[in-house]
Design a protein around this nucleic acid. Structure first.
Lengths: 230, 230, 230, 230
DNA sequence: ACTTAACCGAGACGGTACGTCGTGTCTTGCC
DNA sequence: GGCAAGACACGACGTACCGTCTCGGTTAAGT
């Protein structure tokens, strides 16, 4: 992501270095790195982005300010890294055999994360990202895309099962499903209830279902699948 | 919005004041107020939020810093006010007789605004709003809700014409239509093309249409309307 | 003292004006003037010069700031005026027939004034006067010189009585007597006790007494005076 | 003088610090310190105290404002320190064998300093000192007392030579000699000429000389001294 | 064991903007 | 036209962080 990203350097010690040698001098302190990332998340959760200060991070981590700047070029990079390292790993898509269930289950999970203290970090990133392209990019690459790749697979399964039109644009469909969540999360004009998620899924997926005749065929496909023909 | 909001004081001269009297002392300078709001918008458009400075606003407006602070408690309030006063007025909903056309036309217009320099201000507000509740509230009350009230009327017309289910939740429907726009605008993971808008409308509205039998009845209603029976 | 000095305008309303006519418009408020001078002295006594504020004066006097500036061009002029109006009138020289007694009695009185809350005002004037020539001039003209004129007379009497040399420089002598008082008052390196005054008088006046032969003649003069020959 | 006075820290490197250790962190910049003190003196000389600004000091010294505030708690402390470091060292007392000459020579020197641009600084200190006790204390401790200690020795020599009464109060005598100088310097009601100094010395010292008989004895003492009996 | 080199903490540095306060001027409506 | 009220342009205040720097001290690898 950034020239000197420490996040991607883990384990590179002798692999990513052509000559297989450790650089001379004292190696960087993993302890300091963790303390910094931890206090970053803590401060972000507690005070939000607006009064988030590198100085406070360093103090809380009992670390010199220079140590922070040595490894992260700016506030955004630090937050991005801290966020990336903290991303909830349990936002996977189930495979229930029903696209409605697959999606709504994962989306509910996402809303739960957004509502937890974690959510504060997400909103900080998206907020600060509006004036820091690298931050928003970090969010996309580290949070959004990994999940979206799983989502593509989930959609493909649904298409195969005949639950969705073959010609559906997955990006359009996924934005239609997740856009409302992000909108409510960021603008806070309405609540993000589980019920809302269900009705959202129902509404959007209804528009993505195959047309009449195709649907009849789809039913047959599902039947065969159920019988274990494959 | 805020205790002393000058934005809401317009026209209150004798209405909002119980005894109908001007307060004593020199009245505030409307000229200064406008200069401040103008330079706020200008700076926001030019430099974005991150290096937006009250000092620069005052300088550009040839105004004392104290005059800014006298009327706006903080950066957020100033931006909110400036934004409110600058809101593009041409985001109305047409009445074409087709909900698809009504919506997509207005949504394309919105995207055009978001893509213009104006959009920079919107993203600044939504970004900064993530750590300033009053700012996000200003966006809701001054930008979102006025348009949404028009949207409700547009949806009602469509229901009456039988294009939408009678039991549709307007908030759910509108969030499904606009959420994807806001998401792409803020996260910038994909482009906001007119074509995207059309397909978005098609997808979401498809899921909001009445069921079979009702649809047949709707056709008859539309025919009668066309004949001018009412 | 200053172009618009209100202090000298008292009673001028229709007397000092050539054509005998009152100027048009509302006459100035004597009440405001007094309130301003009073609050000036009060604030000076209470807080000293460093945080003496025109704004505070106006507030305390329940007077518009502009009213202060209308009549006094700046802080210094106001203080000077207030001081002049407050000058203790009881700093006169007695006529005891002995220069030592005349002087020490008045000097003790002066020290008493300096030690009272009044003294704070004097030190404020002399302090601020170091960077405001008009202030120090006001002190000289309104406080120092009036008293000095009395002192000259007192010295003349002493010369006539033969207590002082005929050729004594009155300015030198008076500065030698008062200089130490001002020095201790302003630098505060030592106490200003009545005893100090007495010993100061004794020391300085000893050096100002006529020489031997003259002194014998002086004794005869005094004797004649006592007998009432004049 | 003040808790963190940098002026008194010179040479403390290992003496003033109990454990003999340098404090951690980057050591303070002596270069910055000198630049600040130098620009303080310069500005004081040029513009006097009334428009003496910390901001201007920092600018002129090419130093951050915070660096000034880090080491000096307020304007007064800064001025006091700058003054102390700049005190003219050539105000020593000669030993001519005559108290009149010893004193008048040094007093003329003092007047010369007061009349030079340096004098502006002294008057600024004494002026501002009227509302800042620490400032006036700095003047006493750093300027007045060191010279006075020399003066005491000078007076003792004169007493030994029989030029002054044994019981003379040195503080009274010195205040009588210097008070008039300070008074004229601060109130500026009369000129500070070398002639004035001579006549002042003559007047005051005349009152401090031993009485008749003692004086005869003193003459004998002086004669012996001249013959080199000691 | 000793040198070398990069790390570490602490914290001072030159800056920039903050939000506040006082100055002296002005603009109202009332007297 | 004076007056109270109070807004105005201006500019210094003292503070908080920024990102950089300079210290003494630590931690390995290479000698």
């Amino acid at each position: 992501m950034r020239q000197n990203s420490p996040g991607t350097r883990d384990g590179d010690a002798d692999a990513g270095n052509g000559n297989g040698k450790r650089p001379p001098g004292r190696p960087r302190s993993e302890q300091a790195r963790h303390a910094i990332l931890r206090s970053t998340l803590k401060l972000l959760r507690e005070n939000g982005f607006s009064d988030f200060t590198i100085e406070a991070v360093a103090d809380r981590a009992a670390v010199g300010k220079a140590t922070v700047y040595r490894w992260w070029p700016n506030k955004g990079a630090l937050i991005a890294d801290a966020f990336a390292g903290s991303v909830t790993p349990d936002l996977h898509f189930p495979d229930t055999g029903s696209i409605d269930k697959d999606m709504s289950q994962q989306m509910r999970q996402l809303v739960k994360v957004f509502s937890a203290p974690q959510g504060r970090i997400v909103s900080a990133i998206l907020g600060a990202g509006q004036s820091d392209p690298e931050l928003i990019e970090a969010f996309r690459e580290r949070f959004l895309m990994p999940r979206r790749r799983e989502a593509y697979a989930t959609l493909r399964r649904a298409v195969r099962r005949g639950e969705l039109r073959r010609d559906i644009d997955p990006n359009l469909l996924l934005d239609s499903l997740y856009g409302p969540i992000y909108m409510r999360f960021l603008i806070r004009h309405d609540r993000l209830t589980p019920d809302f998620i269900d009705r959202l899924c129902a509404l959007v997926l209804a528009g993505a279902r195959p047309h009449h005749r195709s649907r009849a065929r789809a039913r047959r496909v599902r039947a065969r699948l159920a019988k274990g023909h494959f």
